[in-house]
């Protein structure tokens, strides 16, 4: 589904990704781990098409399409979803009103008729249970006055409604207490299926206790320096990143 080859990315002329390779197939969950400043969030933002990230070399192939020239809203309609590390507040814009606009923009793109208000509300009612999001939050302004945990749950709720093919979760576990983490993880697990790939960007292996990945990658200094299975994350927790760094240097 996703094939990244020798990707080099600069931000403000500073090279952050320095030859990253990654292949993700449908149905898989990949965890990207790494210390601060290794390029994890850059990878998430580049995949989503954020401005200010310049690809200087290499390629990103998504479902046989070159992502580099694709506008962010088109990527979204093609099924790429980014759960933000810091979801922004948009005062005055109703949470589910925005989501309805998003759903219908995608439906229009794939040639389906827009959902009417009743159909959309039924969809919302079904999905909101997955993340146990309080219904009163649905009609508030986007993320305004949400707690940290509510913001993250709102992201997963949006993911559930938009049903992406490729979901990138950027540090979705950060700032969550253990109960909130479990709820978010359950929500994500319920969205795992054969056609959907998920990339978890995280600092901590804690999340992987609840969302068990198929593969774990260690990102360091703009490159993936080690890949493995679930056990790699546990070993990282035990030995720290220095262990992989020295191994990679050797």
């Amino acid at each position: 589904m996703l094939n990244i080859k020798n990707l080099h990315v600069t931000v403000d002329d500073k090279e952050i990704l320095k030859g990253l390779d990654l292949t993700v197939n449908a149905g898989e969950v990949h965890a990207i781990m790494g210390p601060n400043g290794s390029g994890k969030s850059t990878l998430a933002n580049v995949l989503a098409g954020r401005e200010g990230y310049t690809i200087t070399k290499g390629s990103i192939d998504y479902e046989g399409k070159d992502l580099s020239g694709m506008a962010p809203e088109v990527r979204a309609r093609e099924g790429i979803f980014l759960a933000f590390q810091y979801p922004v507040e948009i005062p005055g814009v109703n949470n589910i009103y925005m989501l309805k606009a998003a759903v219908n923009a995608k439906r229009e793109y794939i040639g389906e008729p827009p959902l009417d208000a009743v159909e959309f509300l039924n969809l919302v009612k079904e999905k909101v249970k997955l993340v146990k999001l309080k219904e009163e939050l649905l009609n508030r302004s986007v993320n305004e006055g949400f707690s940290g945990g509510e913001k993250k749950r709102n992201e997963i709720f949006q993911m559930a409604v938009l049903e992406p093919r490729l979901a990138i979760l950027d540090e979705t576990d950060s700032g969550l207490d253990i109960d909130a983490l479990k709820i978010v993880a359950e929500g994500v697990n319920s969205l795992r299926n054969r056609d959907r790939a998920i990339i978890l960007v995280t600092h901590y292996q804690r999340l992987l206790n609840y969302i068990v990945p198929d593969q774990v990658h260690v990102l360091f200094d703009g490159r993936i320096i080690k890949s493995g299975h679930r056990e790699l994350a546990l070993k990282l927790e035990e030995k720290g990143y220095d262990w992989v760094k020295s191994e990679a240097a050797a």
């Binding site: 989503a48 962010p72 809203e73 990527r75 923009a105």
Partner: peptide
Amino acid sequence: DQLFYCMQRGISEEDAVNMIVNGF
């Protein structure tokens, strides 16, 4: 950030601006 958030959800830039301004 607000614009990108909306666009990442599939909403065009113009619609996103309209939405944010109308919210304002």
